[in-house]
């Protein structure tokens, strides 16, 4: 906004930032209040990755061999943690589509609040929700006998996982703004599965045919999965290529790239709502 249009009442500089943060926290508080009113839905969302963890550990895990040796459960837990972050794209998308369909997004746009607060609030709320989801899944993993290597690397691993969540959060915001119809969420819920399986989350990429292995290794989730395995002291699986050897780099680069791309797309789309 140029000085020409600014009124003396318009907050500026730091004051403006303070308002924007207050607005974002308030908007996030609305989501948290909604979750508290719908504990069953929140519980189901948090327990779904736990169910997968149990299925793959006890039903399929017996037949799984990690290339290079190691316990399949320890190999699986980082993969499940990363996938739980990917599944978050559905929750974010659903929330954004619902807000748009119910006119809540339009109400926010007509209120005296920072334009950034709607998406920033969404970010804060969903990241907070993911912290809870990670805690539930980690507790389940501990219950089935999994142990992390050490506290500091474990915290670094959680940081990488939340960074991945941030990337899929922005993807969810963009898809939600694009969809305009809650039924579109179902399509994303289905497409998430081939995306999840075409990675190193459940099996080592090196166990796949060559070209599939390359795709799985370069899957945006794969870097995070391998890096988290290393940080947790879990078996990584041998036979990986360049992408597996530089997992930590990709675990940072992929989410940063995705966040950047989808944040720009989302802001554009959000501004385009007024067309």
């Amino acid at each position: 906004m140029t000085a020409l249009h600014a009124t003396p009442a318009e907050p500026r500089g730091l004051e403006r930032l303070r308002w924007a943060v207050a607005d974002a926290v308030a908007a996030a508080g609305r989501d948290v209040a909604h979750w508290r009113r719908q504990p069953a839905a929140v519980l189901v969302a948090a327990l779904f990755p736990v169910l997968l963890l149990l299925m793959f550990t006890y039903l399929l895990g017996g037949g799984m061999v990690v290339p290079g040796g190691g316990d399949y459960r320890d190999f699986l837990v980082p993969g499940m943690l990363a996938l739980a972050m990917v599944f978050g794209v559905e929750a974010t998308m659903t929330a954004v589509v619902t807000d748009t369909a119910r006119g809540i997004t339009d109400r926010f746009r007509s209120l005296p609040m920072a334009p950034s607060a709607v998406v920033a609030g969404r970010c804060l709320a969903d990241l907070a929700g993911s912290v809870v989801g990670l805690a539930v899944l980690l507790a389940a993993a501990l219950a089935v006998g999994w142990r992390p290597g050490g506290l500091v690397p474990a915290l670094a691993a959680v940081g990488l996982l939340l960074l991945l969540r941030l990337a899929f959060l922005w993807m969810g915001i963009y898809l939600g703004l694009l969809a305009r119809d809650p039924s579109m969420v179902v399509a994303v819920q289905i497409l998430v599965w081939p995306f999840a399986f075409l990675s190193n989350a459940f099996v080592a990429a090196s166990s796949m045919p060559g070209w599939l292995a390359t795709i799985a290794e370069w899957n945006p989730v794969a870097g995070t999965v391998t890096a988290v395995r290393e940080l947790f002291g879990a078996p990584v699986g041998t036979g990986g290529g360049w992408a597996t050897e530089h997992a930590l780099l990709l675990a940072v680069a992929w989410p940063v790239l995705l966040t950047g791309v989808f944040a720009v797309l989302s802001v554009r789309r959000f501004q385009g709502l007024s067309r």
Partner: peptide, 14 residues
Amino acid sequence: VGVVSQGEGAGQAL
């Protein structure tokens, strides 16, 4: 400025 649009503009659970 106050706005009453055609949509309800409020979440369902609260």
